[in-house]
Write a protein that binds this DNA or RNA. Structure first.
Length: 422
DNA sequence: TCTGGGGTCCTAGGACCC
DNA sequence: TCTGGGGTCCTAGGACCC
């Protein structure tokens, strides 16, 4: 790979909602995080009103009401389906691609002749819009980090219409002085001030900085990043996703809880999800960690945080085993009298699914367990999540359920929520 | 009143061994 | 019991990403 193009969907979650509500084009739109907590996607019109990414919803509600911004609770299933459509479209247009996140893909662009890179990027942009209704921006460059830079410039400067080819070195030199360090992929809140102290403020400063200083300030990660800015590839295209190393399932509660049974029910719900995720990824976990948390923003004295972990005797993805382990840990760490805001489970030390899980003392393959989980997953896949569950999930109502007051219909995954055309 | 969820990688420091 | 250095493994926490 000598040339790479980064395709990034514009305000992806907002764009997904707009596909099914075309009258919201040109209107300010935001999408909230789980539990209607923060703003995690903003249309250009919403940004123009001064709204910002990751700001708590309640803090800007007045602004949102005043300007009649259209607000959606997150509908992750819908976005994941739309993402698959975008990626499938891209896949047909290039020899290789890396799906980097739900709304981004790196494309191998080495086959495109130098003077046709912009034209080809534009063609791809057009095809994705036509097939999916999702607008994208594309940056072309010799490394992933520079492609990120190009994409960012393409997205923020209307004159380029969402496409910028930064493949020639004189163009790279021309543009890097206009990119702030903190806008470079891999430079975050902690590194930017450190660099600034040494007068390194732009991507151009960074590219020209003393390698020993960079190594000292940012370690090996910084070294690689600077090399990429100079046009030397440090990150290659990862066509096949590497196997998962850990799985986390957690949610903030819709409201604070103090009742033991309620908190436990939430935790076990996440354990069930974790088991299903393991099986879908064909992995087994050897290590299970549970945690219960209070409100992160509470006074220090009032903040509860309980964590417990166990090494399982055998790597497994059998839900009842995971439930039993989690239940045991929960009893160990439960603390009466506190207010809890969140529960979660972390599955780590993952290994590939074994064909026949056995123990030293019982060498029979655990076929029954496997058959049970296979049947369970198949039913939930076919008839919708929650069709078949565990006794721990039986309850008339779940007090912990996150808020999602403004959620759009599941247009693509529920028969009863399909879009109706009149 | 109300502040996301799910990941990866790297480093430092402790425990332990020879 | 004292002396010394180096290696490995594990874990916790920081930083970053979307």
């Amino acid at each position: 790979m000598e040339m790479v193009a980064l395709v990034d969907c514009n305000a992806f979650f907002c764009s997904c909602e707009r596909v099914f509500k075309p009258h919201l084009r040109e209107k300010p739109v935001v999408v909230l995080s789980s539990n209607d907590g923060c703003l995690i996607a903003l249309s250009a019109e919403a940004k123009a009103l001064g709204l910002k990414m990751a700001v708590p919803f309640f803090k800007v509600k007045h602004l949102i009401d005043k300007h009649k911004v259209h607000v959606f609770s997150t509908n992750y299933m819908l976005y994941a389906h739309m993402s698959r459509r975008v990626m499938a479209t891209l896949e047909a247009l290039v020899p290789a691609l890396e799906v980097y996140s739900i709304d981004e893909a790196f494309l191998d662009f080495s086959h495109v002749p130098e003077n046709e890179r912009t034209k080809e990027a534009r063609r791809i942009q057009q095809m994705v819009l036509q097939h999916t209704g999702i607008p994208v921006s594309i940056g072309v460059a010799p490394t992933k980090t520079l492609a990120k830079v190009a994409n960012k410039l393409a997205k923020t400067h209307p004159q380029w219409n969402g496409v910028l080819d930064l493949s020639r070195s004189h163009d790279i030199e021309r543009f890097l002085p206009f990119v702030w360090c903190e806008d470079v992929w891999g430079i975050g809140r902690a590194s930017a001030p450190k660099l600034s102290k040494y007068g390194i403020r732009t991507a151009a400063d960074l590219a020209g900085a003393d390698p020993f200083l960079i190594k000292k300030l940012m370690g090996i990660v910084g070294t690689r990043l600077v090399n990429e800015l100079k046009g030397e590839q440090a990150f290659s295209l990862e066509v096949a996703p590497p196997p998962a190393k850990s799985i986390i399932c957690s949610r903030s509660f819709g409201r604070p809880l103090s009742q033991k049974e309620e908190v436990k029910r939430a935790l076990l719900y996440h354990v069930v999800r974790g088991g299903a995720k393991l099986r879908r990824k064909k992995r087994q976990a050897r290590h299970l960690t549970i945690y219960l948390r209070g409100n992160r923003y509470a006074q220090k004295e009032a903040y509860v945080s309980r964590t417990a972990a166990v090494q399982l005797p055998l790597a497994t993805h059998y839900t009842p085993t995971l439930l039993a382990a989690a239940d045991h840990l929960f009893e160990k760490v439960w603390q009466e009298g506190a207010l809890y805001a969140k529960a979660g489970v972390m599955l780590t030390d993952l290994t590939p699914e074994a064909a026949h899980p056995t123990t030293l003392f019982d060498l029979r393959p655990h076929q029954k367990e496997k058959a049970l989980m296979t049947a369970l997953d198949a039913l939930n896949e076919r008839y919708g999540r929650g069709t078949l569950g565990f006794a721990s999930q039986l309850q008339k109502e779940n007090l912990w359920r996150p808020k999602e007051a403004l959620k759009s219909p599941n247009y693509l995954t529920r028969w009863d929520e399909l879009l109706t055309v009149r």
